[in-house]
Design a protein around this nucleic acid. Structure first.
Length: 282
DNA sequence: TTCCAGGTGCATA
DNA sequence: TATGCACATGGA
């Protein structure tokens, strides 16, 4: 993709391969603020990026240019990925066309782990509110916003503190997992293969197969993962198998990863965004 | 009022 | 290994 890195900003020239609405509203990230149809604030860990549309470009303003260059996955060729996916079937063709500006973000492990534990049996609006309250309660004050808390900062909160922030039954999960990660170097997880990583993640409280897939995909770039949630279940039943027999999420994951292989993670995001937006429009 | 949301833990067979 | 149910919370 054509882009240019300057001192405190990144200029994106290809607005078809980078669309902040598609990138931020496809469910992979919860900490962003929409200013209007094209402009957003994006928060990751303790860092901030301001995205603005300017004529035929997007400007990413930030003090952390190198960080966000990697965060937004700017060196991956999404045209090639979309073309390959579009060749598999008509639904994927429609989905890649609909969310043409999606990119898979490279997010921070701890923030992703906690965020997707909170996502369980929850809706995106409420997840965003809970995470925002967690940041305000125990994150670092960065002046105009709060960072996502470190494991040490989050460990200062009791189960009751977390419940008061609206975590519900997930409060116990977040509490336990934070404690068990206090003296663990999450960077060592980058060395694991997908199978090893998923096994480690599923050993943490509040993380099952679906949440583990999300973390492996969004924080560790494991593109052979395919998180199956209620939306993907709808996608599968609508477009891939209209038979009436019950199919388990495990079976759906198996079938879809067989189709999409190492592009599974990308395929999942296009399909999720496509189905969710379409249903919200109707 | 009931249903649903980016599911998981636990008991049971 | 697979299935059924409880689990907080708030918006539709």
């Amino acid at each position: 993709m054509k882009y240019q890195v300057q001192k405190d900003k990144i200029v994106i020239f290809d607005t078809k391969e980078f669309n902040p609405k598609h990138i931020l509203e496809c469910g992979q990230i919860f900490r962003y603020k929409k200013l209007n149809d094209t402009d957003y604030m994006v928060f990751s860990d303790d860092k901030l990026a301001n995205i603005k549309k300017q004529e035929n470009t997007y400007i990413i303003q930030t003090k952390n240019v190198d960080y966000f260059q990697h965060f937004f996955d700017l060196n991956t060729d999404y045209n090639a990925i979309k073309n390959q996916l579009a060749n598999t079937n008509q639904t994927m063709k429609d989905a890649t066309n609909f969310g043409e500006g999606i990119r898979l973000l490279n997010q921070q492990p701890f923030e992703t782990i906690i965020s997707f534990i909170i996502s369980a049996n929850n809706n995106i609006k409420r997840i965003q509110g809970i995470i925002e309250r967690i940041c305000q309660k125990c994150g670092t004050d960065m002046g105009t916003y709060f960072s996502f808390p470190s494991p040490q900062q989050l460990a200062s909160q009791s189960v009751d503190d977390l419940r008061a922030l609206g975590l519900g039954f997930r409060a116990e999960y977040v509490y336990q997992t934070t404690k068990s990660l206090l003296n663990y170097d999450l960077n060592t997880l980058y060395q694991k293969n997908t199978e090893q990583l998923l096994e480690f993640l599923c050993g943490l409280k509040g993380i099952g197969p679906k949440v583990a897939d999300c973390i492996a995909l969004f924080a560790f770039g494991k593109m052979d993962c395919f998180p199956v949630d209620t939306w993907i279940e709808k996608v599968y039943k609508t477009y891939f198998d209209s038979a009436t027999e019950q199919v388990s999420r495990k079976q759906i994951r198996q079938k879809l990863t067989n189709i999409f292989g190492n592009l599974s993670g990308y395929a999942q995001q296009y399909l999720f965004y496509y189905k969710r937006e379409l249903d919200h429009l109707s």
